[in-house]
């Protein structure tokens, strides 16, 4: 078990270096970003001065090694556009995105299980049909489109939900203001509903279908039939036997889910003016703000890797067949 964890951690370090190298090279081949940091009327001399000041005059490998060297000291560099530590900018934006993905993840998993189970139990019925139709639709609608439609319908027409904005929950919580954080929770959730659904709807649809098909598979297996034939009540059969096995594939999905949800995050954060990492990194890429992009990419990979490690460990606990 421990050797497994240690091996995975070592692999993770290689992965993170790979990730930084890719983004570093990618941003560099895009050309010299100096022009973005001088005024419209800057002279050639001023441009050169800025280039030197920003360090873009040095060879690529030298810049990369400097960057890695600083990274090992925990220094992610200073943001070129915000003129402050890149890590600070990223950590400030991260909680909002975690709130968003967490909400979307919970929404996509917690709701998917009953939907999938009922669809499987009443296979072929109208209930199954409508759940699966919703599932199919959910997998065909781009998140930006869903977001704008929700703004128009729930925000502008019905006025049930706020159109845009964000109320922090994680930040006060992490600062230790537990009471304040929880008193803000209802408000935070109120603001989270629309962007969260926009991010998570695709996954909800996919997960519901996944649960349904794996439930169908389990229901057809011998141990369920045996349990039924023993006269165990149907509800107990489903909860104790079928469900326990049916949601394994969903657990496997959770690890990959995070990376997947991030795909919707950039677009949804733009639409709902959510102050998260998606917008930060999109602007940073456009501004060629290399330290911020690097810090974002590293933070997100670390989260992704640890989440997957966690999922593997959980998997061992809930599925006795798997051994590390």
């Amino acid at each position: 078990m421990w050797t497994f964890i240690i091996r995975r951690l070592l692999q993770s370090i290689i992965v993170i270096f790979g990730v930084t190298a890719i983004s570093f090279v990618a941003l560099q081949i895009g050309g010299d970003p100096t022009y973005l940091y001088v005024s419209e009327r800057a002279t050639a001399e001023e441009i050169q001065q800025t280039r030197v000041a920003l360090g873009f005059d040095r060879p690529l490998y030298e810049q990369y090694f400097t960057f890695i060297g600083n990274l090992l000291h925990g220094d992610f560099g200073t943001s070129l556009s915000y003129k402050r530590p890149a890590l600070e900018a990223v950590l400030e934006a991260l909680p909002a995105t975690i709130e968003l993905t967490l909400f979307a993840m919970i929404f996509a998993i917690v709701l998917a299980i009953p939907l999938g189970v009922f669809a499987a139990l009443y296979r072929g019925s109208a209930l199954d049909g409508s759940i699966m139709t919703m599932g199919m639709l959910g997998q065909s609608i781009p998140s930006f489109w869903l977001g704008i439609m929700m703004i128009m319908f729930f925000g502008l027409y019905l006025r049930w939900l706020p159109i845009s904005g964000h109320v922090p929950f994680l930040v006060p919580l992490l600062q230790g203001h537990v009471v304040e954080a929880f008193s803000q929770l209802p408000m935070a959730l109120y603001y989270l509903v629309m962007p969260g659904v926009a991010v998570g709807f695709y996954s909800l649809s996919r997960n519901a279908r996944l649960v349904r098909s794996s439930m169908l598979e389990v229901l057809g297996q011998d141990f369920v039939r045996t349990a039924r034939s023993k006269g165990i009540p149907e509800a107990a059969v489903i909860i104790h036997h079928a469900l326990r096995n049916a949601w394994l594939p969903v657990v496997t999905m959770v690890g990959l889910e995070f990376g997947f949800l991030l795909g919707g995050v950039v677009v949804v954060e733009m639409i709902f003016s959510w102050p998260g990492i998606g917008r930060l990194v999109f602007n940073a890429i456009n501004q060629r703000d290399i330290p911020v992009v690097q810090a974002c990419v590293i933070m997100l990979s670390v989260i992704f890797i640890s989440l997957n490690l966690l999922v593997d460990l959980i998997y061992v606990r809930i599925d006795p067949r798997v051994k590390l």
Binding site: I16, G18, V19, I22, S23, L262, G263, L300
Partner: peptide
């Protein structure tokens, strides 16, 4: 490992970049 790197690199960032 290359596969792990690809997976750990959020796809949307990869695409935008």
């Amino acid at each position: 490992r290359l596969g792990d790197i690809q997976l750990a690199f959020p796809f949307i960032l990869f695409a935008i970049m």
